[in-house]
Simulated scan of single mutants.
Amino acid sequence: MIASGMAAEVADAMAELGTLAPKGYLAGIEDSIEKTLGHPARDFETFIAENAQTFS
């Protein structure tokens, strides 16, 4: 990452983040979308189906 021009601090943070997911630290359910938008988050398939005209 650093060889590609990324700042060392950012590369270190990305490497650390990569170790957290396999340990399950990122497995929690988050309700930020629902709190922000006022409705539950949709899965990707539903989002695409509802907005197909935008992507064609």
Rank of each mutant, 00 (worst) to 15 (best):
4 S>F: 00
52 A>R: 14
47 F>A: 09
34 E>D: 06
4 S>M: 06
45 E>V: 12
34 E>H: 04
46 T>V: 07
35 K>H: 10
48 I>Q: 13
22 P>D: 00
13 A>T: 14
51 N>L: 04
7 A>T: 04
31 D>V: 03
33 I>K: 01
16 E>R: 15
17 L>Y: 15
12 D>T: 13
26 L>F: 08
37 L>I: 04
13 A>C: 05
15 A>W: 08
13 A>Q: 14
2 I>H: 12
54 T>V: 10
51 N>A: 01
18 G>H: 06
54 T>E: 07
8 A>I: 01
54 T>I: 06
55 F>R: 07
2 I>Q: 12
36 T>V: 03
45 E>G: 09
36 T>N: 05
4 S>P: 06
32 S>Y: 10
31 D>R: 04
8 A>S: 09
29 I>V: 12
1 M>V: 06
9 E>Y: 07
24 G>M: 01
23 K>H: 08
33 I>F: 15
2 I>L: 02
52 A>E: 11
20 L>A: 11
21 A>H: 00
46 T>S: 15
26 L>I: 03
8 A>E: 08
54 T>H: 13
47 F>K: 03
8 A>T: 09
24 G>L: 00
40 P>N: 00
38 G>M: 00
50 E>K: 10
45 E>Y: 02
1 M>K: 14
18 G>K: 09
10 V>K: 14
49 A>Q: 15
32 S>N: 10
26 L>N: 09
4 S>T: 04
50 E>N: 08
6 M>Q: 12
36 T>Q: 08
19 T>K: 15
37 L>F: 12
36 T>L: 08
14 M>Y: 11
29 I>H: 14
17 L>C: 12
38 G>W: 00
29 I>L: 05
35 K>C: 02
48 I>F: 15
19 T>E: 12
30 E>C: 05
34 E>M: 02
39 H>W: 05
43 D>I: 07
45 E>F: 02
10 V>A: 10
33 I>G: 03
38 G>N: 03
